[in-house]
Design a protein around this nucleic acid. Sequence first.
DNA 1: TACTCTATTTAGATTAAATCTAAATTTAGA
DNA 2: TCTAAATTTAGATTTAATCTAAATAGAGTA
Lengths: 137, 137
Amino acid sequence: MNKAAQLEASELLKNADVYPSYQRIMVLASLFESDEHPSADALFKQLGSNVPTISRATVYNTLNLLVDKGVIRSLHTAGAETHFDSVSETHGHFFCRKCKKIYDIPQQNTEVKHELDGHLVESQELVFTGLCKECRE
Amino acid sequence: MNKAAQLEASELLKNADVYPSYQRIMVLASLFESDEHPSADALFKQLGSNVPTISRATVYNTLNLLVDKGVIRSLHTAGAETHFDSVSETHGHFFCRKCKKIYDIPQQNTEVKHELDGHLVESQELVFTGLCKECRE
DNA sequence: TACTCTATTTAGATTAAATCTAAATTTAGA
DNA sequence: TCTAAATTTAGATTTAATCTAAATAGAGTA
């Protein structure tokens, strides 16, 4: 429903050379609006009310495409699902093994590498795992 | 078959307060012997010839137990499977999105954090993704 | 040794995240 | 409008990982 998020999504899609279909706009805008780090399935369910006919495959396809294009980031933790992050500034994440929540962690000395031992680096992920503030008690 | 690896595995299990059953010793020794970063299923298949009756569940249970105990590390990449690493020194990994191989990356300024924004940090993972040396060409 | 309780392992069924497939729909260009 | 390419859809399929219930192995006691 957030028009601003949809406009921003549309712009980002165009800039990434991805046709801004209604479904893609809604997937990306929906990711913007959730300040958590939703999984593909969580997004699919969240989208259900706004885009009743959207299919799971479209959500997965769109998210994977946008990761490839560098528009969003994928997050791989000890949890079963892949999560997605719309924020492009480099930062780390903390994964709570108990409540499964993911927290943003400001990343120090963020020297982004483009090559490493001869390998071409396209992205990097720093993930901490443990017990979050809430679950420690 | 490697007796030395089995002895080392047995010692590590005892130190971690885990009963060193034949199967657990073989799983850990098998992980030592593979210089790659095998998935649970790859280990299961590799073990097949030495421990014909070992079950998938035992391999998964053992690996998960050892991750919990801090004896080994789990690796979460853009690939579907979880991989495992027997090396305990902190280091990063590079995941090739084409050939799916995982390379060790020496990790600079390895200041291991134990707390972060109030969260209790138990482990950390640094994973780079891209095209490896071989696949770039 | 015999008995009991607990820990571990096993084979196969089950779950669930993610992908695949083939048909339907939408879009862009002639 | 017509055609070809791109996108979406619903549901089937795949597969990594977990779960279940029974079998086996180990430890402690008499």
